[in-house]
Amino acid sequence: MADISKRFGLRHLRAAPTSHIRHLRRGNVVHDGAGLAFWFRPLVAAISEVPVDDRELAMLFHARTSDFQDVTVQATVTFRITDPAAAATRLDFGIDPDTGVWRAAPLEQIGTLLTENAQQHALQLLARTSLADALTDGVAAVRGRIAEALAAEPRLTETGLEVIAVRVVALRPEPEVERALRTPAREQIQQEADRATYERRAVAVERERAISENELDSRIELARREEQLVTQQGTNARREAEEQATAAAVRTESEASRRTTLATAEAEAVRTLGAANAAAEADRLAAHQQVDPAVLHALALMALAGNLPQVEHLTLTPDLITDLLGRLAR
C-alpha cells in the first residue's frame, strides 16, 4: 500500500520498490513506474498501484478419480505481474487518493482466476485416473498439467500475469480410504517385522544349539581324556607293581640263593668240624685206651678241677676222705 500524506490541499505519494504506480491526469499518463514519489492533486488524479513482486497463492480443492473416489489436492502457485500497464487496464488496481487503499480486490480476482484454471485442468486429469495411479504418480502429473495449462492460458497473458512455479504439496484420499489403503502396507510391514523376529529367534536358537553341542563335545572330549588318563594311570600302576614284583622276586631269589649258599657253607663247615672233632675224639679215645686207668682218673680230676667253680672254703669230713681214698686205692 502506498504512503500518502496531505500538504496544503495536495497529496504526496510514496510507493514501495515492489509497487508499480500508474498516475493519470485527465486521462493522460503523468507518472508510470515502480517506487515513485510525487505530488498530485486528488480531484484530477487517477492512480493505480500494481504489485510486481512474486506472490504465493495456496490452493485446496477436491477432485474425483475414475473409480469415484474423492481426493484432496493441495497446491501452491507462484505468480508475478510482468505487465503492470495491461494488468491496470484489465483489473481494478485503483487506490483511494486519501488513504492509498485499493478500491476493489484485484488480488482476489487474480487468485480466483488462477485457482479456477488450475482446478479445471486438475479435475479433468484426475477424472481419467484411478485412485491407485493418482496416489502413485498423481502429484507429478497434476503439477505438470497445471503448469502447462496456466502457461497456455491466454487470459493470463492478456492480464499481464506470469506463472513462475507450480507445486503440488499433497494429494490425499478420504481418511477412511487412506486408512484402508494403509492397512495392506502395515500388514506387510508387520509380517516383515514378524519374519525378522522369527528369523532372529531361529538364529538365536541355532546359536544356542551350536553352543550346547560345543559344550557337549567338550564334555565328551574331557571324559574321553579322563578315561585315557585313568587307563594310563592303571597301566602305569600295573607296570609299577610288575616291576616291584619282579624286583622283589629277584631280591627273594637272591636272598634265598645267598642263604642256601650260606647254609651249604655252614653245613660243610659243621660237617668238616664234626669230622675233625670226631677224628680228634677218636684219636683221644685211642690214646686213652693205651694209658693207665690211674692216669685217666688223674686227668679226669684235673679236668674236673679246671671246670669247678671258685671255692673259698672247703670242708672235708671223714666220710668223704675215706670214700675218696677208697676210690683212689681201687
Rank of each mutant, 00 (worst) to 15 (best):
Q109G: 05
A245E: 07
T183K: 15
R90L: 04
H313C: 04
S212E: 15
E162P: 02
L299S: 08
E240L: 14
A279I: 04
G35S: 00
I321G: 07
T252G: 12
D3A: 15
R258D: 08
H31Y: 11
N28C: 09
Y198C: 06
L43T: 15
E56Q: 11
N214K: 14
L216I: 06
A294K: 15
L150Q: 04
G111W: 05
A287Q: 10
Q228L: 15
T252A: 14
E206N: 04
R155I: 06
M1S: 11
L328W: 10
L13Q: 00
I81Y: 02
M1Q: 01
T82H: 10
E268K: 09
G100H: 05
V44N: 09
V29S: 03
L123T: 15
F38A: 10
L114W: 04
P309M: 10
L114M: 04
D3G: 05
A165N: 09
R11H: 09
R41P: 05
I189H: 13
D70G: 10
A86M: 06
R219M: 00
Q74A: 13
L328K: 12
L229V: 04
A104S: 10
G234N: 15
D98Q: 08
P318M: 10
D92M: 07
A85V: 09
A34H: 01
V295F: 14
P42K: 11
T252L: 14
L135R: 12
T65F: 07
R11V: 07
I146L: 03
R179Y: 06
S254V: 08
A267R: 14
T112E: 13
A282G: 13
A263H: 15
Q190R: 15
L296S: 05
A305W: 07
W39N: 09
L13T: 02
A104C: 05
S218I: 02
A294P: 08
A204M: 14
E176K: 11
S212P: 01
V50E: 06
D319R: 13
T183N: 08
A170H: 12
W39I: 01
R179V: 05
I95L: 07
H62T: 13
Y198A: 14
E174Y: 08
L299M: 13
E174A: 13
P293L: 05
V139C: 05
L113H: 06
N214F: 06
P84R: 00
D323E: 13
Q109S: 07
L161D: 06
Q74Y: 08
T272L: 14
E266D: 14
T231W: 15
T183M: 12
W39D: 12
E178Y: 03
P17Y: 01
S218W: 07
R103P: 02
